[in-house]
């Protein structure tokens, strides 16, 4: 029998420890890291005897994936595999973040993993886990017992609203009450989600960008940047060059992850617009120029969400990279044409 591997989080990482081994059909380590193969993939394969698959080039049926290895900076991929119930190892130090952050939990996700964090799982840990599952099972049983005792009109684990909602003959008044309650609850839940997104996704990025702006403007590097950026981003030809470089098919998947590079470029250009070094109407073509690599790293995952066949993913990745390249520069040009009359 092959051994199991134990993966702990690196310093500043999140989640884990995960203990994984080959289990029936699940014998593939899939890495979706923009093409290169992280060293931990080899180590995991060596210990467990699993085979490795580059998820960027081909796809693997979900039920054959033992573990997914990703390099996500905190936007999408880090949540997608946990959502599907696939143990996920992130080589970046990303914690619970991104739109799917609720699926990122300690028992299925571990981040900032390098070779040192991967080791052979000892037998002691196996025993520990077993005892934990026994405990869980026994606590579930006691819960069941409690539930069977409650068969009265109102039960202690349900609110009056919930009990009413289950009754068959609702009076008009109850219906109105339930309807209003549902709408208000929807608003409240939407607000909770929105605040969560702001706190965990938008504000951290703002902090990072604000610090970047502070350092650029306060240190005098800003003048240096202005000298480089203004001739490049200050006219349509320079913007088209930026768009061209970002859309190169061998470069675009590397520039994609998390949109971080696009967002930093955008901020740099924004600073120059604010200072008056770049005319404001060029903001529109600039938006297109810094983002011609848009989602290029995400193609196999996105096609996976569309339940595409393996064949489609193998065709789709180069196809979308080519089409991004073909329409990258024209997008910038059209946006420039559309920017006439803006802020005049």
């Amino acid at each position: 029998m092959s051994k199991k591997v134990k993966i702990v989080k690196g310093s500043g990482g999140f989640g884990g420890p995960l203990v994984i081994g080959v289990n029936g059909k699940k014998d593939k380590v899939m890495y979706v890291t923009g093409g290169h193969k992280p060293a931990i993939v080899d180590k995991i394969c060596e210990i467990t005897g699993a085979s490795s698959v580059n998820g960027f080039e081909t796809s693997v049926p979900e039920d054959e994936i033992m573990v997914a290895v990703i390099d996500c900076g905190g936007t999408l991929r880090c949540g997608i595999y946990p959502q599907k119930g696939i143990p996920t190892v992130n080589i970046m130090a990303t914690g619970k973040s991104g739109p799917l952050r609720q699926y990122i939990t300690e028992d299925i996700y571990v981040s900032n993993v390098d070779v040192d964090q991967v080791s052979v799982a000892g037998e002691a840990e196996g025993a520990e886990q077993a005892s934990e599952t026994v405990q869980q099972a026994s606590s579930e049983e006691t819960e069941k017992e409690e539930k069977t005792e409650q068969e009265a009109t109102y039960s202690k684990d349900k609110k009056i609203m919930e009990t009413r909602a289950e009754q068959e003959n609702k009076s008009l008044l109850t219906k109105i009450g339930l309807g209003a309650g549902k709408v208000i609850n929807t608003f409240y839940q939407a607000s909770r989600d929105a605040v969560e997104t702001m706190l965990h996704t938008v504000i951290p990025f703002m902090g990072f960008v604000a610090l970047l702006i502070g350092i650029i403007q306060g240190s005098g590097i800003g003048d240096l940047f202005a000298n480089i950026m203004s001739p490049l981003a200050g006219n349509i030809w320079g913007l088209m060059i930026i768009g061209f470089v970002c859309s190169l098919p061998f470069l675009s998947p590397l520039l994609g992850p998390g949109g971080v590079i696009g967002q930093v470029l955008g901020t740099l250009i924004g600073v120059e617009i604010g200072k008056g070094n770049i005319p404001p109407n060029l903001a529109l073509p600039a938006l297109f120029a810094i983002n011609t690599q848009n989602a290029a790293d995400f193609i196999p995952v996105g096609l996976g969400l569309a339940e595409a066949e393996t064949k489609t993913i193998e065709v789709g990745v180069p196809s979308v990279l080519y089409s991004r390249f073909l329409n990258g520069v024209p997008r910038v040009f059209v946006a420039w044409l559309a920017s006439f009359g803006l802020y005049k």
Binding site: T75, M206, G266, I278, L287, Y343
Partner: peptide, 25 residues
């Protein structure tokens, strides 16, 4: 796409700094 909002906002904050409306952009 709140996680990648700064593609837009990074550039738009320059527009805002000039006192121009972001909505046009």
């Amino acid at each position: 796409n709140p996680a990648e909002l700064f593609i837009f906002l990074g550039i738009a904050s320059g527009i805002q700094q000039l006192g121009l409306p972001m909505t046009d952009l």
